[in-house]
């Protein structure tokens, strides 16, 4: 008997929306493959060290698969996923709160005390930055990540988040100020580096 196998990685990344709506197996898989990198990065960048970003990203895409009929078309998938990511990260933060109190459970906590030896490696500095971002109000954190880290344009972020441009710029200024202030307090950034302009 001949078994035919298909390497899903060879499928076109851009899933045809009509095939997605028909629930074609390969189209759904391609859709997940197309959006997983973006969603996973959002979860890692916005969830902070206490959130299981991989689990959150998978949950996000499962929700998308369940609600495909509520997505108006391929052009709005990204903003739909971003809204879903917000909700799912909020749920995961609640779980992280619970785990914080769970007897004997390991908790990913970053000490805020300054200790230069602790952050000798880039990994530790990264955890510190993730922690700083996760402690920002979520609406500020998302703007900082989308604009400063992911280098998206303001109009693009306006479309993604639905936040008016003026509000977005204000949030961005505030977020940059808070990130720098906290990074200085933790000794990650020298105090003589310029203030947010």
């Amino acid at each position: 008997m001949t078994v035919h196998t298909t390497d899903l990685r060879t499928l076109p990344v851009q899933a045809a929306w009509a095939d997605v709506l028909r629930r074609d197996r390969f189209a759904l898989d391609a859709l997940c493959r197309q959006w997983m990198p973006t969603v996973l990065q959002w979860c890692r960048r916005l969830g902070g060290p206490s959130v299981d970003a991989e689990a959150a990203a998978q949950e996000d895409l499962i929700v998308m698969l369940d609600r495909l009929d509520r997505i108006d078309g391929p052009e709005v998938v990204q903003s739909w996923l971003f809204s879903a990511t917000r909700r799912i990260l909020s749920q995961h933060r609640r779980r992280a709160w619970f785990r914080r109190w769970l007897p004997g459970a390991s908790v990913d906590q970053v000490a805020s005390a300054t200790n230069p030896e602790r952050r000798s490696s880039a990994r530790e500095a990264l955890t510190e930055v993730q922690d700083i971002v996760s402690r920002l109000p979520p609406r500020l954190a998302e703007v900082w990540v989308l604009v400063q880290v992911e280098a998206r344009t303001v109009p693009e972020v306006v479309e993604l988040t639905g936040v008016p441009e003026g509000t977005l710029r204000t949030r961005l200024r505030r977020a940059r100020h808070l990130v720098l202030t906290e990074a200085r307090a933790r000794g990650l950034v020298d105090t003589d580096h310029s203030e947010v302009s």
């Binding site: 899903l8 990685r9 898989d29 997940c32 493959r33 997983m36 990198p37 973006t38 996973l40 990065q41 890692r44 960048r45 970003a53 991989e54 990203a57 998978q58 952050r119 000798s120 880039a122 990994r123 500095a125 990264l126 930055v129 993730q130 971002v133 990540v145 400063q148 880290v149 992911e150 940059r176 990130v179 720098l180 990074a183 000794g187 990650l188 950034v189 020298d190 580096h193 947010v196």
Partner: peptide, 27 residues
């Protein structure tokens, strides 16, 4: 090691980038 705002952004961008292996495994 001291950072700048830009290097913190780069650190977060590069340190959280989704690799092909990550995506393969999760998908």
């Amino acid at each position: 090691m001291s950072h700048t705002e830009e290097s913190l952004q780069n650190l977060l961008r590069d340190g959280t980038r989704a690799t092909t292996d990550d995506v393969d495994q999760l998908v």
